[in-house]
Amino acid sequence: MQLLQLLVFPGLTFFVWIAFAFEWLERKTAARMQGRVGPMIAGPFGLLQPVADFLKLASKEQIIPKHSEKFVLTWGPPLYFAAPAIGIIFIPVIGNESIIGHPLDLLFVLFVLAFSTLMASLLGYSAAGRYSTIAVGRLVVQYTSYEIPLILSVISPAILAGNLSLGGIVSAQSNYWFILSAPIGFAVFIIASLAELEKPPFDIPSAKTEIVGGWMTDFSGNALAYVKLTKNLSYVFLSALAVTLFLGGPNGPVLFHQIILQYVMNTIYFMVKLFSVGFLIFVVKTALARIRIDQAAELFWTILTPLSLAQLGLVILLR
């Protein structure tokens, strides 16, 4: 039963479908805001376009560059995919507890985030192209910049809840959401998420007009399909984390006595919050231009780190 939960609902399959839905929503919102129509052929309103893209890419031939590290290039993408896929099953969806809860799973989730970036830089370096080498340099600089504000902003809810497990944090939010006492933390988390996801204004490691495909330049076929899927899954993962930490997870305004109905309602609440956070990220992403890596580092070190520290102090005082 637990295995079924892990693999189907609310586990991997469920989130992979949400990842596809996120990509569709991202493309559609961006398109509509720019006066275009976006995907519209595959499926109703083009809903199946991301799936079609994935299948097409996965069925293509993978070209491995001559001087690249073949072992890493072959086995790296599944490992890269594993990072958000493992992290996401710790997110509580149907109730206050996730499928496999652990008293310290917040730390594990943070490790997964770091591991994802590590895999990305490893993949970029092993491809051994000039563009990917530069991109990895940028990726690492960006990582060192955003990681501290990200972790600091994650600590605030943990302190408020007095708990280091995601389930505990969600339970602590049954009365009020932590976004009310930690609004700056939420904002910093969203900005750091944009950096983690390499979305504008922080799409510096994958800036196509400067370094072609970023660290993904030398990827093709199956590997590229999985890398892209992983990016979408990370998208869902970070949005879900924001929902869990700041927006009360699956907690909703109305409680039901019937257990199944409660599960369904919890899932619906969670999804609504998830897509709202996702939508927020899409809008921010569409409204901004890409900044330079030095500007990004400056932003994170001089503005966001002090801000999140101030938030931390505030939270400690509140408590």
């Binding site: 961006a30 720019q34 006066g35 275009r36 504008p200 007009t209 409204a287 231009a289």
Partner: peptide, 16 residues
């Protein structure tokens, strides 16, 4: 310029 600076929205609007 919008496209080069990663500001695709400006690019689409102006071309529209």
């Amino acid at each position: 310029v919008g496209y080069w600076t990663g500001f695709d929205t400006l690019f689409m609007w102006i071309w529209k």
